[in-house]
Nucleic acid binder design. Structure first.
Length: 400
RNA sequence: GCGUAGGUGGCAGAGCGGUCAAUUGCAUCAGACUGUAAAUCUGACGCCCUAUGGGCUACGGGGGUUCAAAUCCCUCCCUACGCA
């Protein structure tokens, strides 16, 4: 029996998209939904009340970060992630799999999970010095050794360890420990990494079943496969069919790197295979246009650091594109960030004031900007959901 | 009035004969950011042009020494501190 209940309420005709309800022990999530990222058990610059008020339903924290600081045992002793950070609602934790990438192959390089260069041969310079390039995460026999970015201490994380940590953190939904392979890696490596992720997924499931007796935690498996159709489909099949003693994953994450152009096809390949009665989470994706793409292709959950990160750097979402509030033209612009926005920031402050706060490096700038961007994204997904219920997804998408 | 230390690009502050249109920080002007190494990072920043090159004007003002001066000398102006 699954720890979470997922019910599909309505589908987009002729597409994979759907609107549903995901029930967790700590509350329900109306999907599609945007999961707000609170890596270190805090949504940067915001109080949980502010996160709630802007419309967020669920937050996602990170295994690697909380394991290093303050430690998963401490979070457990405090009563669990939700209690610890005073978030009354559903919670999730990522497994640390992304850090295998961000602190490993991507460390010190200009590669991220959304690829700019679509010709793989042009990316070879990024991998030529793989063995010499400094990195904080190295893949070992049956796990990954992380050199802490905080103090340099080495920690070996295995799939079992990640699951143990996540059970200690105590979120409602946890993820399998995977390898988010760099898009700059060769085809052969992608295949190797995929097999490794599958082996790890099995071990995660085994460990989870062991630890979940008498508990009610949901484990999502992660489909990888980079940009290759064959690998994507292979992974979707492997993860959805994976079973240990009759038990399988409660839902799925779609991980790995994409190019903007082929993100939709990649997501489609995967979601056509994943069992439709279980929820799917597109990991780390969440620019406005990506949300339509994801929902249309069957994604139920998104998370992304972009809204909060770019907010702290002065970029703000508007219906007519991003603005950089630090630009000189906003110094004495007394209009709202976005004319029709109903967020707390737009209801009470002007662009000129935000401009002033950013220029003065006032911490309130981060708070007000984060509220606006999160409100924009969280509510955009809510509107998309409503459009599905109203049989008007295409219409809403076009109007946006 | 005398003595001492100084006057350098928006600000602070290096440089003390050629490699100086001038280190660096801040400010300014842009850009980037997609499972958070992130309140971070990158670029531009005297003027002009046929612009990975060329020209012009510049280190308080004026004059001088030198092949060559932000750097040395003279003089004037200004600032800070000390003494009358």
């Amino acid at each position: 029996m699954s720890a979470v209940k997922f019910k599909i309420e309505k589908r987009i005709k002729g597409k994979l998209g759907r609107a549903g309800v995901l029930e967790t022990p700590n509350g329900i999530i109306q999907t599609p939904a945007f999961v707000v990222v609170g890596t270190k058990a805090t949504v940067k610059a915001l109080s949980p009340e502010q996160v709630k008020d802007l419309g967020a339903q669920v937050v996602l924290a990170n295994t690697y970060h909380l394991y290093l600081q303050p430690g998963d045992e401490l979070v457990k002793n405090s009563g669990g992630l939700g209690k610890f950070m005073n978030w009354r609602g559903p919670t999730m934790t990522d497994s640390g799999g992304f850090q295998v990438f961000s602190l490993g192959a991507a460390y010190g390089k200009e590669i991220s999970k959304v690829v700019k260069i679509t010709d793989p041969s042009l990316m070879i310079p990024e991998r030529f010095d793989d063995n010499n390039a400094p990195r904080l995460a190295k893949i070992g026999q049956d796990g990954v050794s992380f050199k802490s970015h905080l103090d340099g201490a080495v920690h070996y994380i295995t799939p079992e360890k990640s699951i143990q940590i996540q059970h200690n953190l105590g979120a409602d939904i946890i993820f399998a420990f995977d390898e988010c392979a760099s898009p700059a890696e060769s085809a052969r490596y992608q295949e190797e990494a995929l097999d490794r992720t599958h082996r790890w997924a099995k071990r995660c499931l085994e460990e989870h079943i062991k630890l979940n007796t008498g508990k009610n935690v949901a484990l999502f498996g992660i489909a990888q496969g980079g940009r290759e159709e064959e690998l994507r489909k292979k992974s979707a099949r492997a993860i959805s069919e994976m079973e240990v003693g009759g038990e399988s994953f409660d839902g799925f994450g779609i991980g790995g790197s994409f190019a903007k152009e082929d993100m939709s096809t990649a997501v489609k390949w995967v979601n056509e295979i994943l069992p439709e009665e279980k929820p799917r989470h597109l990991l780390g994706i969440g620019e406005p246009e990506d949300l339509f793409m994801g929902v249309e292709n069957g994604v139920d959950l998104f998370d992304c650091v972009a809204p909060t990160r770019i907010a702290r750097n002065g970029s703000l979402y508007t219906m007519s594109g991003n603005i950089n509030i630090l630009n000189a033209k906003f110094i004495s612009d007394f209009s709202k960030i976005d004319e029709n926005c109903r967020c707390y920031t737009c209801q009470n402050y002007t662009r000129a004031y935000l401009s002033h706060l950013f220029r003065g490096k006032e911490i309130l700038a981060n708070t007000l900007a984060s509220i606006h961007n999160l409100h924009f994204i969280v509510n955009l997904v809510k509107k998309i959901r409503q459009s599905i219920l109203d049989d008007n997804f295409e219409g809403f998408k076009d109007s946006f």
